[in-house]
Amino acid sequence: MAGKLISAVFGVLAVCFLLLPLVVILPLAFTSSQFLIYPIPSFSLRWFEELFTTPVWRDSIVNSLIIGAGTTILATVLGVLAALGLREKLNFISAPLNTVFLLPMVVPAVVLGVGMQILYAKLGLSSSYAGIIIAHTVIAIPLVIVSVANSLQGMDTRLELAAASLGAGPAATLRHVTLPLAFPGIMTGAVLAFAVSLDEVVLNIFLAGPGQRTLARQMFATLRDSISPAIAAAAFLFIAGTVLLTLLVLLARRRFSGAR
């Protein structure tokens, strides 16, 4: 009984610790005040209006969406291919290759940023959308690989043998059997890739020019010079977007498992 009480109290505290920062910042998005402070004098949508009308903010939102979309597509395609390839226990290369693919998860972003800055200068990719998308893809790929590999691991390999025996060549088996069954993992990987791209600041500082300033980067910059409630509004957008995406994935997974 006491044990149950303790774990309940601990659980509530943990949830508070995770959610309080959000609860604190979110109402400020609707303040009418010039400053990021409590109490809120009255509610207004002026900071959202500012977000969508001021060129700096609006461009940063658009940039985030462009770069996020590009990263999601690139990282998902490459990650799925890598996960499929790494499944084959071909030879002694597979295991080391797996480690290499997952390395960007543990390498500090600062280190990656410095390295890429030097490389990009030589390749002429500095301050370009392509450069940022590639950089974000590098850190997003491991997440896609892990979630897709997870899906593939849970799959009965005999399903693919069965497909072959029924007349499906390798391409048809991939299209009709393997990919549909890996779909939940692919969806999860794609959302994670988008979230990572949205959230990335360090690589952007090193690699992006003013033309590729993203929402996260803009929030970071704004924090330093003017603490405007526009940051809270941006944070609100961020959180709303993330929750929406998560719900989308949950829905897709539910539909899929309901289909089972």
């Binding site: 009965d156 005999r158 069965a162 025996s165 007349g167 289909a259 089972r260």
Partner: peptide
């Protein structure tokens, strides 16, 4: 062009 029946059925769940 051979039919194969597995112990684990191997039906496509989707």
């Amino acid at each position: 062009n051979m039919g194969v029946v597995f112990q684990s059925y191997a039906l496509f769940p989707h």
